[in-house]
Write a protein that binds this DNA or RNA. Structure first.
Length: 549
DNA sequence: TCGTGTCGCGCC
DNA sequence: AAAGGGCGCGACACGA
């Protein structure tokens, strides 16, 4: 059972029941915007449909605000992106058609109007688009299409519910770490004190350490021969300025990224409401937007995330997700077995591939990111001998990218083609007129694109695992809530690539911890069937996010 | 006074 | 000499 929602020119909403292929099935209704939540709630209860709409971010927030949660949806815009780009649908009319308004980015319908011809600016018809998509979709993409849409529901629900945030604790942290809040334009006391030390150590009384250019000059004048002012380079240097400078940088970062200004802009009524962009990264990872920086919440301030009285936070983190994904994706038995205990890297050492756990970690990162030099590059041959299938998979992905081909994740999301400029560079380099410089530059660019496609298959498949994990958990949390409005019971409150935070009444925290583990098992089964691969979680039941890990 | 590019840093 | 993938953001630098 599917039901499409679409806007009409008169501002009302058209409700169209559909069958699974997109054929109309039964009577349409028209309702006003204000009557929509009630109409959806009724149909949801009676028929449990999959709601078909152009863009979850255009429909779901107002339904949630109206007290209506839905079970399933088909987000046509997200599905369009997958279907247009996937290798699995490359020869379908949809993939071959010219881009239209359905290809515009999330929430950009209005901004996109100028990009398309007049006739494309008519209200989008979800019924026609759904039928077209259903005709183009192949069975191999079904899981990805539904997981992506489920992700859109999760993202909207997280934003609606928000992450509980204690503004008072955040302010205490800022005052302890930076000093009391300065009048605008000035530095907090503890930062100003460090500036005095830095200026003395560099004999540069006017220095503004916030300016990388000025700072670099002052460092070099003082004999500190660095090529940038970055932390990793400064750590290598032995000079009295390094310690206060690194401390200053840390404080400056806290102030600008998560200081008083961030707090006022992003926390309201005790909640931080992250704004996720589902599918915002080409690999399928989520992105975030707005000043919130949802996907980079620093550890330093997680102490301000505190469960409501009588509630708990269940924090779950998928350990070593990407290397485990690679092992399973490649069906590399040795690497899957190395990961059968809780620590994959220890398992790699135990199998004799490398000598130390730290080497195993560096080597695996190098394999996934494409390192060729340094410690990571040196360890690669040993890793390739021990785990030939896993390494072959990432090498093949890199070679395909270097040739300008697409690569795909397990569930069928494909990488984009490289740019036209990239292709021209490659063909110029292989022509008779090519100079050595042409060839060299083309080779460098080919390798760069190869590192992207190499990483794409692992990062993208890990993102698919995470989508399945969330979708599965969302279902079981709903069951645990026993019919109450979802924010009254256990609900997802935060997501960060391989980590979830669930806010829940204390009495169900243990059940939630079990549910989040079960959901990880289910995600592994959805992606890899009966392969004996495990995705262990670190689960903590805490009052305060800072207490986890 | 804009917009744009670069750096540096945080997250995975 | 070559250089590990993906992001978002704020601050600074610079040119229109």
């Amino acid at each position: 059972m599917h039901i499409a929602l679409s806007s009409e020119r008169d501002g009302r909403v058209l409700i169209t029941p559909l069958d699974g292929s997109g054929e109309r099935q039964g009577e349409q209704q028209h309702v006003s915007r204000s009557a929509l939540p009630a109409a959806v709630a009724l149909l949801e209860a009676e028929r449990h449909p999959r709601w078909v709409w152009d863009d979850t971010t255009r429909w779901y927030p107002s339904l949630l605000a109206g007290g209506v949660r839905v079970e399933r949806c088909a987000d046509l815009r997200l599905r369009r992106t997958i279907l247009r780009n996937s290798d699995l649908t490359a020869s379908t009319p949809l993939a071959l058609s010219a881009p239209d308004a359905w290809d515009a980015p999330a929430g950009a319908q209005d901004a996109a109007d100028g990009l398309f011809e007049l006739e494309e600016r008519l209200p989008l018809d979800p019924v026609a688009e759904f039928a077209w998509q259903q005709g183009s979709a192949v069975s191999g993409l079904a899981l990805l299409l539904s997981a992506e849409s489920a992700g859109a529901l999760v993202a909207a629900e997280i934003q609606y519910a928000g992450l509980p945030w204690r503004e008072d604790l955040h302010r205490d942290l800022l005052e302890r770490t930076l000093g009391s809040r300065p009048v605008s334009g000035e530095r907090p006391q503890l930062m100003e004190a460090l500036v005095v030390h830095i200026r003395q150590a560099l004999e540069a009384p006017q220095l503004n350490p916030d300016s990388p250019a000025e700072l670099l000059k002052a460092l070099r004048r003082a004999g500190v021969m660095v090529s940038s002012t970055s932390k990793w380079e400064l750590t290598e240097v032995d000079h009295p300025v390094v310690e206060p400078l690194l401390r200053y940088k840390k404080l400056a970062r806290l102030l600008s990224a998560n200081g008083w200004h961030w707090l006022e802009a992003n926390v309201r009524d005790g909640r931080f409401r992250p704004e996720y962009v589902v599918g915002g990264v080409v690999t399928g990872r989520w992105a975030s937007k707005g000043g919130g920086g949802a996907l980079q919440l620093p550890r330093q301030i997680r102490g301000a995330v505190v469960a409501d009285p009588g509630w708990k936070l269940v924090v779950a983190d998928a350990s070593q997700l990407e290397p485990r994904i690679l092992a399973a994706l490649a069906a590399d038995r040795g690497m899957v077995e190395a990961g059968s205990a809780s620590d994959l890297y220890a398992g790699i050492v135990a199998r004799g591939a490398v000598g130390a756990r730290e080497d195993a970690k560096i080597a695996m990162l190098g394999a996934m990111y494409g390192a060729t030099t340094g410690d990571s590059g040196r360890l690669m041959p040993a890793l390739a001998r021990a785990f030939p299938k896993a390494i072959e998979l990432v090498e093949n992905a890199a070679r395909a990218g270097e040739r300008g081909q697409k690569v795909s994740t397990l569930l069928g999301r494909s990488s984009p083609f490289p740019s036209e400029a990239w292709r021209e560079m490659q063909s110029r380099a292989s022509s008779d007129a090519a100079t050595d410089a042409d060839r060299k530059r083309a080779r460098t660019e080919a390798r760069t694109w190869g590192r992207f496609t190499r990483n794409f298959v692992v990062q993208g498949t890990a993102a698919e695992w995470a989508l399945c994990w969330m979708a599965s958990l969302r279902r079981s949390l709903h069951e645990l809530s026993g019919g109450a409005w979802f924010t009254r019971g256990p609900h997802l409150a935060f997501f960060m690539h391989d980590e979830l935070v669930i806010h829940c009444p204390a009495e169900v925290a243990d059940a939630v911890a079990d549910a989040v583990r079960d959901a990880a098992v289910e995600a592994g089964r959805l992606l890899f069937g009966t392969m004996p691969v495990t995705f262990p979680l670190t689960v903590a039941v805490v009052d305060n996010y800072g207490q986890a890990k």
